[in-house]
Design a protein around this nucleic acid. Structure first.
Lengths: 159, 159
DNA sequence: CTGACTGCAAAGGGTTTGCAGTGCT
DNA sequence: AGCACTGCAAACCCTTTGCAGTCAG
């Protein structure tokens, strides 16, 4: 499965715009890296993007892909799955529950809602596979982080 | 904020039961590591669990905490946040959407639902902080993994 | 032209593994 | 007593960083 031609084009246009507005240079590497992520549906990791881009641009280096991904994130052109957590975190709460996650510091808290537990998942999702559970991930800024000024252009930390 | 005394006790009872049913040894380390995660609300990472357990059990080693966490996961006593992904994965889809995630292989696919986009988040969640967005994470087993037999007692891979 | 960007190689940091000693059942 | 488990240290792998050459604006 591929992203539609039209959608890919729209994403590329957004890229051009963001790049020029941010005043950063438009290099072949950045273009190809963004084109790769913009045209894939599988949410690849850095290594995967690297391998795919290398087919067209054999000289790219892995660290350029890393640098570019964080840059694209800063420009708001892409996002990370799971609120950009780094280390694995664990949960001993085995009941049905949902999460509030702070996108700034990674703080995660449980909340409960019977209404949400009974949520209706579209039939089409079953095309992907069998469903075990579902939970809502609410992303925001926790009170503690809101009190502090936002760090400028840095990878959000997860302390 | 702490987990209630009653709830912690229930979790400890589940631990005893699972440990003996699995026929693995009940060591001080495992007990204290599970007690720690079972009584915390903040979904700590391995390092954090390590530091906290070390206050009571100064000789535990970091690798024992790692080994124990994976064991608890195998026993179904805990789970990981964000479907146990390891490396960071990226998403160029900036529209409102939701995810289906295979807990076996990490395959992730988008799906859309206007009904879900308009979901009602409990007022109480605002006590944690401001809300930017929310999306449903549906966890299951993808068709490809369902066709293969499940690997025995291994950390799920995310290829 | 000139500073931002890339590629390389080396460093850094989190996680895993082999092994000998320890302790649970 | 036997064997699983722990602690230690080294290995491993993913990610970041310093630097000199290169290239977009």
């Amino acid at each position: 499965m591929e992203i539609s031609f039209r959608e890919t084009n729209e994403r590329m246009a957004r890229f051009e715009k963001a790049i020029s507005e941010a005043g950063v240079k438009k290099t072949i590497q950045r273009l190809e890296i963004f084109r790769e992520i913009a045209s894939s549906v599988d949410h690849p990791d850095v290594e995967t993007v690297y391998e795919r881009v290398r087919e067209r641009l054999p000289t790219v280096s892995l660290d350029t892909v890393y640098r570019t991904m964080w840059m694209l994130l800063d420009l708001g052109l892409i996002s990370t799955l799971g609120a950009s957590r780094d280390r694995t975190r664990f949960d001993a709460n085995m009941e049905n529950h949902h999460h509030f996650v702070c996108s700034r510091c990674g703080l995660t808290r449980d909340f409960y809602s019977e209404e949400l537990d009974g949520i209706k998942i579209p039939e089409s999702v079953k095309d992907f596979g069998s469903i075990n559970k579902a939970h809502l991930e609410v992303v925001g800024i926790c009170k503690q982080c809101a009190a502090k000024p936002k760090p400028i252009a840095q990878k959000e930390d997860t302390s």
